[in-house]
Design a protein around this nucleic acid. Structure first.
Lengths: 340, 340
DNA sequence: CTGAAAGCGCTTACAG
DNA sequence: CTGAAAGCGCTTACAG
């Protein structure tokens, strides 16, 4: 009879180690826990027994006893979104430094799926869950484990995100500095917190820089964060006559901005000579398009470390954490064309 | 005294359910397992007790008993690579249909990290591990749990991947059909299985279509799969005089192909009028660049389902699975310019 | 400082 | 068909 080849062969247990080292299992467990007070020679015996047997603690047993496993959950709307992929990578790296693995799930931007995912992770007794809330309004799950919102607020859980207003202000100031006085702003989906923040920051800064003898014209559009929305709105904006149309378009995401650049190319409008374009995020593609995109770099590493740090803090110390991004000036922005 | 707010409140156990339903824990466990033979009225009592208590089985305890958890591991070189992100998403979806969660790790293309990750997942007693092997030569881990190679062979574990040769043949035939007789092929890194397969398939097909009175000139280049490599090699190829240079460039990845298109734009060579370009993979970006890229679509959904299916098969049935991709003709290819 | 023992919450032979 | 009981591999008071 063949044994099932998929069956894990019997692994050495703490008991085997104890026997080989002639100590009790308690002692083995203590050296495992790096416990203060195990006499050096016992400790050595145990360690070498572990090595000889190639002992690895059974994580499920430990989890059962301590009711916690070294796993954190991460839920994103869609891992194929380059920004979330970048975030996931950094969360994974940051978690790894703390000996935590990460369980990944996609909510597909669907609130019900999201809820199911959170609940499933909760059932698995993960140490904490990071969630990038779905665009379309979450139905947050009330869990008795730490949850941290990433990028977008999930329920009323603490939020780690870029300071959206500050970022938009920097972009607005950059365009104004270059001399643009007729600007279009493409915002994200209406009603989404992130969209609102970015838009308000931009408007705020423009208003601040506007005076009676140096007026700025600012038009606002809305669309989702995608390439396609950017392209459609870009076309809409740019189809007006050269004297009518803005000299700069600021988009609420890099993807939108790249869409805008495509529409400009279709209409034979040169970026940046005839039109400046800015994005937001600094996804990898931003520096790969031609011309390379001026944008606001989200401090993803800091977001990841801030989020991971918070998830292990006592709940009452889990405050919001807004991190300032940095302006990255590339080739998609320039002074406006001179007009006579 | 405040209790720690992070402590999970005591969850109802199988014992609580048993008591409430006035049955033994064994019986509860049996209804949990959807076990054949629990008399209907007991079954009902148990079910309603579970509902009332909002009982959720403790997965760690179950894992300890059965020595397996409903989790699979996935290791990719880099989740920010759009192809791997797409793959991860599909694996996650496919695993979800089987009630499995997925644990994600990045190897950063580093064989040692990869090994550590596989080992860590193994320690967690996952049901199986998918690995997209690191580019730079893995040092495979011998595990007593199922492992399936995805896209690139890991050790000697069964491989689920696109039929690379077939895909390249299709691209070669497409270019030849259009009339191209002077073609450059940019292969992936030398020594990598995938690179070799794609290249050989291409060469094979071209040779097959070549005859004495209809010769084809084919030049081969090598570089990694990145945008930058594509751009650099593209420039190298295209800097020769118009009569010297190829009328088509086939790249071993979409990223390379997009790089090639950038170099063409810099050199004011029009795609596809003066130069046809093809990629491989069909990443999302392929249909977003201008002109949209003709490429070979990897059947990612099929790869995901094939891989997940295999991981739950007995080892001896875990055969390789090569899936044919499909040619996606877009605007980056056209007949060669007519020359006098 | 160390050992013996209880117990985490399940599943599964074993009886009946 | 169901219950009583053993046991998965750990950790952690409790003694000494």
């Amino acid at each position: 009879m063949m044994s099932n080849p998929n069956k894990r062969s019997r692994m050495p247990t703490i008991k085997d180690v104890a026997k080989k080292a002639s100590v009790s299992v308690g002692t083995v467990s203590r050296v495992l826990a790096d416990n203060d007070t195990v006499k050096e020679d016992l400790r050595k015996r145990v360690l070498s027994a572990m090595r000889e047997l190639n002992y690895k603690p059974n994580l499920a047993a430990r989890a059962l006893r301590t009711n916690s496993i070294d796993v954190v959950g991460l839920i994103v709307p869609d891992i194929t979104n380059p920004f979330f992929a970048q975030l996931a990578k950094n969360i994974e790296m940051e978690a790894a430094t703390r000996g935590q693995s990460v369980m990944l799930a996609n909510s597909h931007d669907d609130p019900d799926t999201e809820r199911t995912q959170v609940s499933a992770l909760h059932d698995r007794a993960v140490s904490g869950i990071f969630v990038v809330a779905a665009t379309d309004g979450s139905r947050p799950f009330t869990a008795d484990i730490p949850i941290v919102s990433l990028d977008r607020r999930y329920g009323s859980y603490p939020l780690v995100a870029t300071d959206q207003r500050d970022g938009s202000r920097k972009l607005a100031a950059h365009l104004h500095d270059l001399g643009h006085r007729k600007i279009a702003y493409i915002a994200g989906p209406e009603g989404m917190g992130v969209s609102r923040e970015r838009r308000d920051g931009f408007v705020e800064q423009i208003e601040k820089l506007t005076s009676d003898d140096d007026p700025v014209e600012l038009a606002i559009y809305h669309g989702d964060f995608s390439y396609d929305a950017g392209e459609a709105i870009g076309r809409l904006i740019l189809e007006s006559s050269p004297s009518e149309r803005p000299t700069a378009i600021a988009a609420a995401s890099d993807q939108q901005a790249i869409g805008v650049m495509r529409s400009a190319r279709d209409l034979r409008i040169n970026v940046p000579q005839d039109l400046s374009v800015t994005g937001f995020d600094d996804i990898a593609l931003a520096s790969l398009v031609v011309p390379r995109l001026t944008t606001l770099r989200q401090p993803i590493e800091d977001m990841a470390s801030g989020a991971v740090e918070r998830i292990f803090l006592p709940t009452e110390e889990q405050t919001d954490f807004a991190i300032r991004g940095s302006l990255v000036v590339r080739q998609s922005t320039a002074p406006p064309p001179s007009r006579d």
